[in-house]
Design a protein around this nucleic acid. Sequence first.
DNA 1: TATGTGACCATTTTTGTCACTTGGTCATTT
DNA 2: AAATGACCAAGTGACAAAAATGGTCACATA
Lengths: 193, 193
Amino acid sequence: MDRRQVILQGATKSFSMFGYKATTMEQVAKLANVGKGTIYNFFTNKEELLQEVVISMIRDMKAEAEQTLSPNASFIENAHNGLMKMLQFREQHLLFAKLIEEEKAIQTPAVKQMLVKIEEEIVTFLADRLRLGIEKNEVRPCNPDLVAFLLLKSYLAMIVDWQLTHEEALHEEEILELFKETIFRGIANGSSE
Amino acid sequence: MDRRQVILQGATKSFSMFGYKATTMEQVAKLANVGKGTIYNFFTNKEELLQEVVISMIRDMKAEAEQTLSPNASFIENAHNGLMKMLQFREQHLLFAKLIEEEKAIQTPAVKQMLVKIEEEIVTFLADRLRLGIEKNEVRPCNPDLVAFLLLKSYLAMIVDWQLTHEEALHEEEILELFKETIFRGIANGSSE
DNA sequence: TATGTGACCATTTTTGTCACTTGGTCATTT
DNA sequence: AAATGACCAAGTGACAAAAATGGTCACATA
């Protein structure tokens, strides 16, 4: 059994449940069924452990997203499918939500750095896609960075913030429909104009 | 000089600068040039003082918004003008931002209640406008509550969150342009379909 | 020999205490 | 009748002692 992988899994679980600060290395060791010292054979410290957890998570998501997107499909189709795929990761995104919450509540430098990195990564990915769409004339001219930022924040609002003031979480179809009927339609190019 | 009004002004100033918790009644009294006890002739307690500050702020904003909106103008025009008007209140919105920040950092029940109330108020206002637009066939059919929520959160993201990861705040024209080119276009009805 | 491990230590975090501040009252002043 | 600041109980922050935690390392294991 790959010890590095098992440790990563335990860490992911603990970070998701308790956040960064409340996760102890002993906790991770217990969840992974290894001695505490073993963790330090694979990761230099707690901070790097979080980094690896997040990085591998993002890597997986990106890979799945890239597999979902097709150069042949229209921008709207790709946007739809991409969002649908992301919604399947919804649970994992709660780790991010947890980290964001933690960053606001307590100021943990390691977490802050991480979050900025994640945001950058995602916004860059989205902005690149948008630029491609603009080139192919499927997306109306716009500021890709601004729109990418808007997309990310909107997504998080529907996934995380909605629950804070409403009883029930939104269904995935509702979120899909909402984006389709607002932002996606707004930026998609109907005619070549 | 209207003492009640003067107290409200002092309180607004202090809440905006220091947040709810860090604002002392003595501070407010000093800013308003009255004795501390005098405040309690007009407001039952600190919590109600905050409520009154926020309520009168919202009342003013709503009045201005309503004055800006015209039944004759198209939905897009109204959306544009309404957003433009709101952007003029941008500084005041920073009070809300401050309260949101405070609510995340320290859990202040009085502040939490207040924020829920504000959100409700704004979302209801927006949703009503959207319903009207749908009836008049200027807005495509959609879930008004969801779209209203999206609009509010998007606005806050551009006003507040953007600065957290970027050097410069967004210019008002950039925000206007962004909304026009994304959400507004998305929900507006081009043809009567 | 290479890898896994938990006792161990320096540092950080939490707990408990106490002096001080603050929200709210009320007898006194204006 | 309205305003006020001294006053009080409740709440808060500062500080020290106690507990917990990240990281190391000498030893165990294979």
